[in-house]
Amino acid sequence: MPFFSQSFKYECVNFMKTDRTPLMLQRFFSHPWSHVVIGIWHKYPNPHCTHVVTVDVIDRSVDSDTGIIRTERVLGCKQKTPVWIVKLFGGSEDAYVREISFVDPATQSATITSVNLSLSQFASCYERIQYRPTSPHQTMFTQTAEIQARMAMWRTMTDRVESWLVQRFEQNAKQGKAGFSDVLRTMWEPEQPQLSPGAS
């Protein structure tokens, strides 16, 4: 644990969840903004996030006036879906996500917006991640998600679908943070002495 917190200190500042309001997570990476943003493109494959199996760029542009890079990607995910969801909506283990990112060096802001493509006629999960520098050595990570069932359903069913999506978001957010921290550590701290008795 000391090794862990030494190499990338993070704290959970805020986690709120109320009915129909966005979920929000805020954390810090002990890395400069530029390192975090370079790391974005190296996040997958990742042993913490084995549910993401494919990543493809389908569009990318570099704005020659602003220097902003826009990237549109499709992520292919494999994740066990509860039987009741499959029975209700069909679908399979394969799920696809559209992700659009903007990297703006001038304002030092990176935003990543994701939305599910699969089962999007039934429910949508909009997720937004933002990376902003808080100091030359620290980057703030803010993640919000809006999850909503789209169709008119019985209230109990809507609640059930939403709470399943919320659970999945929380689980994936946790795994995503752990996975990305490892990526950044491997990329930028290769000389880290192995001092921790607890590290395996």
Binding site: P22, Y126, R128
Partner: peptide, 15 residues
């Protein structure tokens, strides 16, 4: 949601 431009940084709505 075309997202041709960076979203406003206030967070919140994805639409």
């Amino acid at each position: 949601n075309p997202l041709r431009h960076p979203p406003s940084t206030s967070g919140g709505s994805g639409s």
